[in-house]
Amino acid sequence: MDGKKRKNIKPGLKVSVVQKKDQKSGELTDGVVKDILTNSATHPYGIKVRLESGVVGRVQKIKS
């Protein structure tokens, strides 16, 4: 599944996100989606979400 498409992301989904501070290193943070912050249908760098832990980042991978 593609983290660049909003329709693929739902609250409660397990994902890996890259935080703003980690964009250069590419370090990923795992968590569960709480809120979807991107309004557009797609975004070239990934849909921005807030995880249940409070971390905000762009979805890079959707876990199964």
Rank of each mutant, 00 (worst) to 15 (best):
K24H: 00
D22W: 03
I62R: 05
V59W: 07
K4I: 09
N8T: 06
D22R: 13
M1I: 07
D2F: 07
V15T: 05
K61A: 07
S64M: 09
S25F: 06
K20V: 06
G26K: 08
K4S: 12
S53A: 10
K14D: 00
G31N: 10
I62K: 04
K34R: 13
E27P: 04
G31S: 13
P44Q: 11
N39M: 07
D30N: 15
D30R: 12
D35M: 11
I9F: 02
T29C: 04
P44A: 09
N39I: 05
Q60G: 12
V49K: 13
S40P: 04
A41Y: 13
M1D: 07
A41R: 15
L51G: 11
V17F: 03
S16H: 12
T42R: 14
S16Y: 11
K20F: 07
V55R: 01
K20M: 08
G31R: 12
R50Y: 05
S64Y: 08
Q19I: 11
P44R: 09
I47T: 14
K24N: 02
S40K: 14
L28D: 07
T38L: 06
I36M: 04
D22G: 12
P11T: 08
V33R: 01
Q19S: 12
H43M: 08
V17G: 00
L51K: 07
D22T: 11
V33Q: 01
L13K: 13
I47Y: 09
I62W: 04
G12L: 05
L13F: 02
S40H: 08
S64G: 08
K21W: 02
K48G: 02
N39E: 12
G54Y: 03
L28T: 15
K14E: 00
V32F: 00
I62L: 13
T29W: 01
A41C: 05
G46L: 10
E27V: 13
V59Q: 06
N8I: 01
Y45T: 14
L28A: 14
Q23P: 03
G54N: 08
K20C: 03
Q60F: 11
